[in-house]
Computed example of a mutant assay.
Amino acid sequence: MKSRLLTTVAVIGAVSSLCNFAKAADIIEEPYFPPPAPVIVEEVATGGWYLRGDVGYVFESETDGYYNGWNIDPGVQFVDDVFHYDSITTKGAASFGAGVGYRFTDHLRLDATLDYFKSDVEGSSNCNTQVQQSYNILANAGCQYDDTSKVAIWTALANAYVDLGTYGGITPYVGAGLGFAHVKYDDMRNEIVCGSHPNCPATNYVGFHAGESSWRFASSLSAGASVDITHNLKFDAGYRYTRIASGDAFGYDELDRNAGATGVQGSDNGFNIHAVRAGLRYEFGGSGGGFGKGKGKAVEPIYASTPLYEEPAPLYEEPVYK
């Protein structure tokens, strides 16, 4: 009887242990994943003011013009004809420029520039009919004017540029500008070379014409590329074409003035200026390309005040029964 009782108690204990084990198997602890710390990514400013400085080379160019023929004969002293001036050549020269601008977006910027160069000028044309008649030579006798002077040109332009994207730190661009040019001629030396005709004088006539100055309309087209030296400092190199409108060139010489001539005698038909330029551009706000980025906008991470480190989860949490 006693052994049966012990056996029954043992069976009841085993069943109870199995039940508790089964309940324990149903306990599922949910894993704890600490939330990641938020990160704020702020774009580096791509807009803002910039300064630029450039040096360049203006290539030789050629234009033409016209001049008034003043009749010096007594009683008929007036402009009796207007003659074509065949060639006015500006020689190659160095140029210098500076400007201030503003970048609006990664691709659009505007600036105002002031550029200067001074060039030697050479001109030539056939002698007009008055000179030929006074020398008693034919029109095809080889008589011509040989003229020399200098011209100083300032251009003040408002320019717009489109940056075409940055590739490995290089940003190509195209641009256009509108503004004004101030053209100032030095006094012109005018020599009449008569030629080999027997009626030509033994000594060539040499006269001096006062140089004129004038403000003129100017426009330009440009293309080039900038290279990132740093995020703010750029090396800029490119080509610029500038069209300068026609204007006054020189006045009358002493012989014509003594015969009553006043005002402007000769004018040019404007200039086509071709130049290559290189310089530095410092952008206070930084540029869209960024140093070495090769694309888009440069960014700099700024971390929020929430720490990246989280306190570890407690070792024990109340079990969740399912």
Rank of each mutant, 00 (worst) to 15 (best):
N20A: 01
F217R: 04
T306V: 15
L221K: 00
A94F: 15
A10Y: 01
G165H: 01
F284K: 11
Y309G: 02
D106T: 09
Y145I: 08
T63L: 00
V41I: 12
R281E: 07
F83W: 11
A181F: 03
L18K: 11
S219L: 13
F59H: 12
M188H: 05
E300K: 12
Y67N: 00
V15L: 04
V55A: 05
G97H: 05
T46K: 10
R4I: 12
E311P: 04
L164C: 05
E60I: 01
A218M: 00
S124K: 15
N128R: 11
K295A: 10
C200I: 12
G177K: 02
A10H: 04
V227A: 15
G142Q: 05
G238T: 00
E254N: 14
A237P: 15
N190R: 15
D111H: 14
A304M: 03
H209V: 02
L18N: 09
I229S: 02
T262F: 08
V320L: 14
P74N: 06
W154P: 03
V82L: 05
A249K: 10
Y67P: 08
T89H: 12
V121Q: 06
K234M: 03
G263F: 10
T8Y: 00
R281N: 08
A158E: 03
N128Y: 11
A225Q: 07
N140L: 13
F96P: 04
Y66K: 15
G92T: 07
L315Y: 10
A141F: 03
G99C: 06
A278I: 05
G285R: 11
K2P: 09
D115N: 05
V79S: 09
K322E: 15
W49D: 05
A249F: 15
S61T: 08
F104M: 02
A141K: 03
C127M: 13
C127I: 10
T129R: 07
G179D: 08
G260R: 07
E212I: 02
L138M: 08
A141V: 07
T105E: 06
G169E: 09
L51N: 08
F83M: 08
P74W: 04
V100N: 05
A45Y: 07
R281C: 07
A278W: 12
A245Y: 05
P35N: 14
L114S: 00
V131K: 13
I302W: 09
F291I: 00
A218K: 04
I28V: 13
N204M: 03
E318F: 01
A210E: 13
Q130K: 05
A181T: 08
C194I: 06
D81P: 08
R243T: 12
L255A: 14
L221F: 02
G169Q: 06
A202W: 10
T8H: 01
P198Y: 03
G211L: 01
G123W: 09
L157E: 01
F250M: 15
K184C: 07
T129H: 02
K295D: 10
I40V: 11
E283L: 07
D86T: 00
K295Y: 14
L114N: 01
K91F: 14
S119A: 05
G177D: 00
D106A: 06
A176S: 13
